[in-house]
Amino acid sequence: MPEPLSRRGLLQGSAAAAVAIPVLGEAQAAAPGRPGRQKEQARMNAVGLTVNGREVHLQLDPRTTLLDALREHLHLTGTKKGCDHGQCGACTVIVEGRRINSCLTLAVMHEGDHVTTIEGLGTPEKLHPMQRAFITHDGYQCGYCTPGQICSAVAVLEEIEAGIPSHATEDLDRVAFSDSEVRERMSGNICRCAAYPNIVAAIREVAGEDKA
């Protein structure tokens, strides 16, 4: 029998004791008379974005993440939801030239921003060189992390070009392409199918570093 903790003492102590488990956040939330709990819709915010070169105007719940705005409102489902908590990178998009996790940012915070998603990089008929290279090098398997990997890869090459250092950079003032730089910089994009070496090969080719 484990040593009971203060809250669970009851829980562990007696099977007969009926315990309301949501004693924490939920209990507060359910307290009567709390404002904002009436059956009414959340206040909507107008949000204007430029997505893949197209201006869009949305009325959004302020809780809507950029990821859900793309997927559920604009039906741009190429951007994937793998964890929704910034732990996997599947939702990576490029905002104002920078790759970010679209799950950990609110759409309403991006008024006026330019967003590039996988759909903006290329289409099956007109592939972006990075998309083409992912196919050539089999840089994917199930395909779910792939759009995030590709958006990240495109941005990584720009980061290296711009001289932004990484954990793998030996001399902070000399930033240059290398496989280990790519591996470190791409580490925020998890691929459970683990096409990692193939992804690195694809990026290497696009960077023009392919020695093969």
Binding site: T79, I118, E119, L127, Q131, I135, T136, Y140, P147
Partner: peptide, 12 residues
């Protein structure tokens, strides 16, 4: 190359 490749790399 995978025949489903273009669909996967373009998010379609």
């Amino acid at each position: 190359d995978r025949i489903d490749g273009p669909a996967k790399v373009t998010g379609t």
